[in-house]
Design a protein around this nucleic acid. Structure first.
Lengths: 186, 186
DNA sequence: CAACTCTTTGAGTGAACACTCTAATTTGAG
DNA sequence: CTCAAATTAGAGTGTTCACTCAAAGAGTTG
């Protein structure tokens, strides 16, 4: 293995970038700060990455993937998916915030990122809908999709609020929502 | 009036800043870009504003106030309030985006702004709840509040999506939501 | 018209930024 | 052990940023 050291440095750079994003957002995520955390100089950074954007996109891609704890799951119930979503927001508020910021601000400098967020949302609606029709055989796919779009809108709205107001009880409110609309449960 | 010209320039600066914040977020909102839109030089900017932050805060304050089309209304129904909210998002997507960006980014450098957003949301929940108990006398205030928090979360989630995906039919989805949960209507 | 204040200009400041380049060093395969 | 490739250091590039300042210009008031 001829580039073991490089791979280790790569990992340290990504760790540093992720941590910075977590601590202070995109603004504090400078090359200098990343290199300090990784214990290297700027030259080493550019030996392993083409640009800062490449690192940002890598971390953002992590965030988008992380929103989906189990993208391949075929046996999840809606309640499982909701619980996984809430867990993500609770344990990874930083990535969640980045996800929403990217969605809102049009994707840093890159339009492709915004498109990816839109596509990702559509896939999630589809997954929730599949789970919902498994639970509720009386619903048409169209009706189930409308209901899941509404559910996801509410989840996103609650998440937005929990990111703004640290004292907000996200899981409690989501539980309440599920009990208001009992049909969402299995 | 000894400072008429200054007031006009001030307005042009705020217009430019608002547009920039909406189009490209805080990153694109530079002094140079603001001055270009306002048709002035940097020196004029600093004759009228202490700092860039002052302009950002002014625009944000605008956005927060603008989210409430009729804060004093006492006779509105929930459907009226929902319709007003949708109209705001449709007609003022710029301010709406700013509002969400501020909520998400933790209030720029100023903690007071974040607190203001949180307080504003609480007031809106209260107004929706008052309207809901007027419509549905069978509900307790607590039950009505839970329902209105869920409704507002869904509205915020839908709005977020419409700001991300220009093709999203916000009013249609909100209509669907209201018909799914018929109790929201009068 | 004269005095004064408000407004605008436009060059200029230093700091921070992403990024480059060359030369030195380390490393692992042969 | 040798040597080429991978890795690193560290000074340096040009650009952009928010912001300053002295001086010229414009408009209001007495």
């Amino acid at each position: 293995m001829r580039n073991r050291a490089g791979l280790e440095t790569r990992a340290r750079i990504l760790d540093g970038a992720r941590g910075l994003l977590s601590d202070g957002g995109l603004d504090r995520m400078t090359i200098k700060a990343i290199c300090e955390r990784a214990g290297i100089r700027a030259g080493s950074f550019y030996n392993l990455f083409e640009s800062k954007e490449e690192v940002v996109l890598a971390v953002v891609r992590e965030a988008i993937v992380a929103v989906d704890p189990d993208p391949a799951g075929e046996s999840d119930t809606v309640a499982d998916l909701v619980s996984a979503y809430v867990s993500f927001i609770e344990t990874q508020p930083v990535l969640a915030r980045v996800y929403f910021l990217v969605a809102l601000s049009g994707g840093l400098t890159d339009e492709k990122i915004r498109a990816r967020v839109v596509r990702h949302h559509a896939e999630r609606v589809s997954r929730f809908t599949s789970a919902h029709v498994r639970d509720r055989l009386d619903l048409s796919r169209e009706a189930a999709e409308q209901r899941m779009e509404a559910l996801l809108a509410a989840l996103n709205g609650y998440s937005l609020q929990s990111l703004t107001d640290p004292g907000f009880d996200l899981r409690g409110h989501v539980e309440t929502l599920l009990s208001l609309e009992a049909g969402f449960r299995t």
